[in-house]
Each structure stands twice: as structure tokens, then as C-alpha cells.
């Protein structure tokens, strides 16, 4: 692709999210979301092979549907209540409609079917953009409308997402699909605490972005997209493979790693809100996700022989990928837990 066109697309990707962040008016927020969707389409179909074009078409259709629903709900709100402000949307029908549309946009559980298939058709870098940057603008809107949304709707979306994220990932052998289901499960954790403590939603989103960035970049470094190639990928860079398994366990939420922090705090918050049953159920659902993360770890690292020999190292070229972002995000994804008080103080 022409570098000028890439420049236009990437800057529009930034513009869309910024517009949605900056707007207090539904029309402008909708425009930002549409710019975001439009700008990423050519990046998704960059390779022009049928799988990528199929993924692009699916993505376009779902995002266009969601955006049309948002526009419909916001005009209905303007019609009934006479105002366009995002954080003052209070009519139950319109808030429910908008929340459903935004759930479709980010891929929450009953509306999640597009996400694994779209992510599977993309390159790892584009998949990374899709599962991190493209989530920001809808989340800005979700956090603003959250106080007025039906509580049961949010709880249902959250619990369903964690469970379906866990169950869906169990039988997958393709890493990008597993990452999509992991995204769905993490989004469920973010939504469940949305009304009681939005700060924790932000915290979970930020830590998820660190962890998933690290995972995607590490997979790209190893050029692996399925479990079978994963099991021989460690021979290229044994140390990076070890770090990837730590990042995966962090995504699963094991204690000394970053991923434990949001889960811990969310469970604490749910307990404080006298929702012990929800807290127990969502904690159990994390085990489902942990199972497939553990399987990835097993395939990748846990079978490495204690004394690695030279004969298993494959013939390869010198890697030209820049690893600065990978290094930063891996450090953040594995060792942020001791900084929990500081992080909370920064967000609160």
C-alpha cells in the first residue's frame, strides 16, 4: 500500500477515536466511530486474499449495524427527551439500545460471533489494533452511559461474556481465535464492574491492552498462528517463549502477575457490593479461560528440555522486527502487580 494512503488511514484511525473521546454530542461520537470503522477496513484487507476480505466484510457489516443502531437510539433519545448529550441519556429504551449496539461493537457475549472469525482472518498486527485501539472509542461511550443502563443487562452481558469467552476458547487450535475468546472473556470482567466502580473497568482495560499487546507481538516475533507451530517456536527464542508463557498466565490471572490485579480488585468490589454469588460465578468462569492459557503454555514452554541443545535450533534469518514495544509491554504485562496501590491512586 502507498505510504501516503497508510498515513491517511492511520491518522484517521487516530482522529476517529479522538473525536469520540472529545465529544459530548451523540452525532459527533457516532461520526468518530464511523471514521474508525472506515479507516481500518483497507488495513484489514491489505493482503487481498479471500480470508482477509471475508473478515473485512464481516467486520464492516457488524460495525455498520452497530453504528446504525447507535444513531437510531440517539435520534430517538433526542426525539423523546429533547437533548443530545451522551452522559445525560436517561430514557430506558434508548440506553438499552445503545448499550446493546456498543456491546455488538466491542464483541460482548450474545453479540460476539463476529469477533473470532474476523480476528482469524487478519494479520497479527492488524489483529492487535482491532483488539486494543478499536475498543477504546466504544469504551469511552460505555463508561459515559453506564450509570443509566439497566443493571441486569450489564450483569448478563458480563457473566455471559466471561463464560462464553472461556467455553469458546477451549476447543480452538488457532491462536488468533483463542485471543478473540480471551478478549471476550476480559471484556466480560470489565462490564461486570462497570456500574459499581468504573475505575476498575478502566484498570482492567488498560492491563488487558498491555497483556494482549505483549502476546500478539510475541506471536508475531515467532511467526506462529496455531498450536502446532507454537510447540516448535520456542527453539527460535527460548527466553521469549518463557516470557510468552508468563504473559499468557498473566492473561489467565495468576497471582504474582499483572493480570491478577484487575480480577482481584473486581472480585473485592463485587463482594463489597454484596454480590457474593456473582463474584463466585465469575471467579469460576476464569478457570475456563485459564485452562486454554495453560494449554498454550504447555505446548510452548513446559515441554522444553531442561538442557537445550544446539541441534533443535532451526535455520533462520536475523529478525528485523523492532522489539521495543514488545519489551515494554511484556514488562508491564508481567510485573505490574506490586504497583497496584500506585495504579489505583493514579486512576481514582
Amino acid at each position: 500500500m502507498n505510504p501516503y494512503v497508510i498515513m491517511i488511514l492511520i491518522s484517521s484511525l487516530g482522529l476517529g477515536t479522538t473525536l469520540t473521546f472529545a465529544s459530548s454530542h451523540w452525532l459527533l461520537a457516532w461520526m468518530g466511530l464511523e471514521i474508525n470503522t472506515l479507516a481500518i477496513l483497507p488495513l484489514m484487507a491489505q493482503q487481498h486474499h479471500p480470508r482477509a476480505v471475508e473478515a473485512t466484510t464481516k467486520y464492516f457489516l457488524t460495525q455498520a449495524t452497530a453504528a446504525a443502531m447507535i444513531l437510531f437510539a440517539s435520534t430517538t433519545n433526542a426525539w423523546i427527551m429533547g437533548q443530545w448529550d451522551i452522559n445525560q441519556m436517561s430514557h430506558p429504551i434508548t440506553t438499552t439500545l445503545v448499550m446493546t449496539a456498543l456491546a455488538l461493537k466491542i464483541g460482548l457475549a450474545p453479540m460476539h460471533f463476529w469477533l473470532p472469525e474476523v480476528l482469524q482472518g487478519l494479520e497479527l498486527t492488524t489483529g492487535l489494533i482491532l483488539s486494543t485501539w478499536q475498543k477504546l472509542a466504544p469504551f469511552a461511550l460505555i463508561i459515559q452511559i453506564a450509570p443509566n443502563v439497566n443493571h441486569s443487562l450489564l450483569m448478563t452481558l458480563g457473566l455471559l461474556s466471561t463464560f462464553i469467552g472461556g467455553w469458546g476458547g477451549l476447543n480452538q487450535t488457532q491462536l488468533r481465535k483463542i485471543m478473540a475468546y480471551s478478549s471476550i472473556a476480559h471484556l466480560g470482567w470489565m462490564i461486570i464492574v462497570l456500574q459499581t466502580m468504573p475505575t476498575l473497568t478502566l484498570l482492567a482495560l488498560i492491563t488487558y491492552i498491555f497483556m494482549t499487546t505483549s502476546t500478539f507481538l510475541m506471536l508475531k516475533l515467532n511467526q506462529t498462528t496455531k498450536i502446532t507451530t507454537l510447540s516448535s517456536a520456542w527453539t527460535k527464542t527460548p527466553l521469549a517463549a518463557t516470557l510468552l508463557s508468563l504473559t499468557l498466565l498473566s492473561l489467565g490471572g495468576l497471582p504474582p502477575l499483572t493480570g491478577f490485579m484487575p480480577k482481584w480488585l473486581i472480585l473485592q468490589e463485587l463482594t463489597k457490593q454484596h454480590l457474593p454469588l456473582t463474584a463466585t460465578i465469575i471467579a469460576i468462569s476464569a478457570l475456563l479461560s485459564l485452562y486454554f492459557y495453560l494449554r498454550l503454555c504447555y505446548a510452548m514452554t513446559l515441554t522444553i528440555s531442561p538442557s537445550t541443545n544446539n541441534s533443535s535450533a532451526p535455520w533462520r534469518l536475523k529478525n528485523t522486527q523492532s522489539t521495543l514495544l514488545l519489551a515494554t509491554s511484556t514488562v508491564l504485562a508481567t510485573s505490574l502487580l506490586p504497583l497496584t496501590p500506585t495504579t489505583l491512586a493514579m486512576l481514582l
Partner: peptide
């Protein structure tokens, strides 16, 4: 932007 997107696609 839409023009560029359509041309690129």
C-alpha cells in the same frame, strides 16, 4: 477518506 478506502479496497 471514504474515497480512499473504496479505491484501496
Amino acid at each position: 477518506l471514504t474515497l480512499f478506502v473504496v479505491l484501496e479496497l
